[in-house]
Nucleic acid binder design. Structure first.
Lengths: 342, 342
DNA sequence: AATTAGCACTCGAGCAATAAGAGTGCTAAA
DNA sequence: TTTAGCACTCTTATTGCTCGAGTGCTAATT
C-alpha cells in the first residue's frame, strides 16, 4: 500500500469520517468547514482529485462531493483510524448488560450479541463456544414412556444437547444398563467429532441381541455428538439494518441472506486471525457487497472457541465498532474461562 | 353481520380474490373479464358502489378500482371463502418436510414452522409444547469443575432446560447428595409453575449448614422451572415479508416488532378458540395494523399445548393459508402425542 | 513550485405543466 | 332493473425548466 502525503491522509480520513457521520457525499467546502484545515477549498479539490485518481475516493456523479471507495475504507481502517480504547460509556453498557448472564456460557454469548447489536445498530452474529478438543463427558438417557426417552449429551466444554428418541421395543432397565455400558466403553471421553454415524454402526454391530432397539439410540448419540460440533450460530438485530438508508432495495436480499445459516456460517469461518474487518466486495458473497463484516474470535482457556461479529453497511462506524467488538470478545472469553475453571 | 344479496356476495368474493392474486385495485371491467359474470360493467359498478357505502370495499382514490376493507376481508373469511381441504400438493410438501423430525417434539415444531414459512411466503411463529400440567420429572446436576455444574431439568411433557451454575464453596459429593435430597423432597412431581424464587427460598431456609452453597443451586432450579413455562417462541421467515410490496415504509417497524419476543408472545396468547384469524386493526398492536394473523393451537394428548401461526399482509391468501395451518397444527399435535405416548 | 481566486461547466434534485389512461358516477334510454 | 354513453376525476409518467452544489481548469499570487 503506497504511502500518501500527510495532507492526503488527513483529507482522506476526514472524508471517511464525515461520510460515516452524515451519509452525504463530502465536498471540498464542507470538508474545510468541518475540519478547519489551513488551506483553501481549491487545494482540497486538487488533493481530492488525486485521491480520486488513485482510487481512494469516488464521486457518485460529477457535481456531488466524494465518498470513500472500498480501497479508501480499507486504507482508513488499516492506516488512518485512531486506534483507541473502547469508549468509556460503551464499556459500562457492556459490563452492566452482561453481568446478569455470567455463569452460563451460552447465555453469556447471547447477551453479548444482543448488546452489541444495540450498541452498533447493526446486525450481529455469534457462535456458541466449541472447541476442537470437545470430549463427550456424559450421556444420560431418561425414559419418558415405554418406547421413548430423552437423551442428553454433555461435552467437556459445557455444550449440552438433547433430543427425544423412540425405539420399537420396550425400554426397560436391562436395555438401559446395556446402553450405559456401551456409552461408557465407546463414547465417554472420546472427541465428539469422532462419533459419526458410521462409527456408531460399528458399535451397534457388537451388540448381539437387542440390536434393533439399540440402533436408534446409538443413532441419536451420533446425532447429538454431531450437533455439538455445529457452532450454533445465531443472528440478531437484523432489523436494525432497515433503519439505515445505505441499503436501497438490496436490503431484501441482504436480510434473506442473513436469515440463512449455512452461508453465514461460511462467512464467519472464512477469516483467519483474531479480529478481521472485511469491507464490501472483499466479502465473497454477492449479498454482502455493500456491507462490511467485523468478526472477532473469543478464546476459552486459550483456545479459539467461538465468534462474535457485526454486519453492517460499509459506511459503518469502524472507529467505535472495532474497539467494542474487541473488548466484548475479550470479556466473553475471560468470563467463560472463569466460569468453567476448576 | 347483515346478509348481502347473492350477487353482492359474488362480486365481493371476486374483488377479494382478484386483489389477493394481483395486488392491484379491481375495477368493474377487470372484474367482469376475470369472472365472466353475466351482466354489464355498469351493473357491477352500481353494486360496487353499494358495497363501498356498506363499508366492504374501499377505493384508494377516485379513479382507481376497489380493494377490500378490513370489514370486507372479515366478511370474506367468515362467509364467502371456499372452506376446502388443504391442497394436495401442499399436503405432500408438509408430510415430506416434516418426516425427518418425527420423534423430537421441539425439532418437529421447528420444522413445521419453517415449512409453513416456505409455503405461505409469510412470517411464521411457533411455540414449543407446554402444558398447564407440567410436572418436574427429573433434575440432574452434573459437576463441571470444582465450583461449577451443569443443571438439567426435565418436565413431564418433554421440555428440557439446562444452564450452568457456579457456587462459592466446593461442590463435593456431600453437597450433591444433600441437593438431590432436597430436589426429591420438594421438587420432583411438582408443577413447574409452582417453583418460584420465593418458594425456593423457603426450601433453602430449611438447610442449616451449607446454606450459601445451596442457595445459588436452588435459584438455578427456579430459573429453569420458570423457563419451562415461557413458551419458547420462535419466529421465522420474516424476510419473506420484504418481498411483498404491500408494506411500504412500515415494513421496518413491523420487522422490528416481530423481532421482539414479549409482544409477540402477547399476540399469540390473546386468542381464544382453536384457530383464529385476526385481520388488520383487529390486532391490538399498531404495528400489525396492515397485517393479518392466522393462529392455531396444536394439542398433545388432548390438551392445548403450543401454537403455530402465520403473520402476513391483510392481502394474504386466506383460502390456502388457513387450511394449511389447520392441517399442520393437527399433524404436529398428532405426531407429538404419538411420540410421547407410553 | 505550490497555493489560491475566479469562473464556466456539469449534473442531479425538485417542481410545474402536460398528456394519457383507467375507472368512476350519473343520466337517460331500454 | 339493467345498460349504454359520457363527462369527470384522479394517478402516473413524461417533459422541460430552474436552482444549487460542487467540480475542474486557468491564471494570478505567494
Amino acid at each position: 500500500m503506497a504511502e500518501l502525503s500527510e495532507r492526503k491522509n488527513q483529507i482522506l480520513a476526514s472524508v471517511v469520517e464525515l461520510y460515516i457521520k452524515t451519509g452525504e457525499p463530502v465536498g471540498s467546502k464542507g470538508l474545510l468547514a468541518a475540519t478547519g484545515m489551513n488551506c483553501s477549498s481549491a487545494t482540497v479539490r486538487n488533493e481530492m482529485n488525486e485521491l480520486d485518481q488513485l482510487g481512494y475516493l469516488i464521486q457518485p456523479h460529477t457535481s456531488a462531493g466524494r465518498i470513500p471507495s472500498e480501497k479508501g475504507y480499507r486504507y482508513y481502517v488499516d492506516n488512518l483510524m485512531m486506534v483507541r480504547d473502547i469508549d468509556e460509556y460503551t464499556k459500562r453498557m457492556i459490563d452492566a448488560g452482561i453481568s446478569s448472564s455470567i455463569g452460563d456460557p451460552e447465555k453469556l454469548v447471547n447477551s453479548a450479541r444482543e448488546l452489541l447489536a444495540d450498541i452498533t445498530k447493526c446486525a450481529c452474529v455469534s457462535t456458541a463456544p466449541v472447541g476442537e478438543t470437545n470430549l463427550v463427558r456424559k450421556i444420560e438417557l431418561v425414559p419418558v414412556g415405554r418406547h421413548t426417552a430423552m437423551m442428553v449429551l454433555l461435552t467437556s466444554n459445557g455444550i449440552l444437547k438433547s433430543r427425544m428418541c423412540r425405539v420399537d421395543g420396550e425400554l426397560n432397565a436391562d436395555i438401559l444398563e446395556k446402553f450405559y455400558n456401551l456409552v461408557k466403553t465407546f463414547f465417554i471421553g472420546k472427541p465428539s467429532v469422532d462419533i459419526s454415524l458410521a462409527s456408531v454402526q460399528t458399535v451397534a454391530a457388537s451388540v448381539e441381541e437387542d440390536y434393533f432397539i439399540m440402533l436408534p439410540l446409538l443413532a441419536a448419540v451420533s446425532d447429538l455428538a454431531g450437533s455439538t460440533g455445529d457452532s450454533r450460530l445465531v443472528i440478531g438485530g437484523s432489523s436494525n439494518l432497515l433503519a439505515l438508508k445505505d441499503y436501497g432495495d438490496s436490503i431484501a436480499s441482504l436480510l434473506e441472506f442473513l436469515s440463512r445459516k449455512e452461508p453465514l456460517n461460511d462467512v464467519i469461518h472464512s477469516y483467519k486471525g483474531q479480529l478481521n474487518v472485511s469491507i464490501g466486495s472483499e466479502n465473497r458473497y454477492k449479498q454482502l457487497e455493500d456491507s462490511s463484516v467485523v468478526i472477532s474470535k473469543y478464546s476459552v482457556n486459550g483456545d479459539d472457541s467461538g465468534t462474535i461479529g457485526v454486519i453492517g453497511p460499509t459506511r459503518m462506524d469502524y472507529e467505535n465498532i472495532i474497539p467494542s467488538v474487541r473488548y466484548l470478545t475479550d470479556l466473553v472469553g475471560r468470563l467463560i474461562t472463569s466460569a468453567l475453571e476448576e
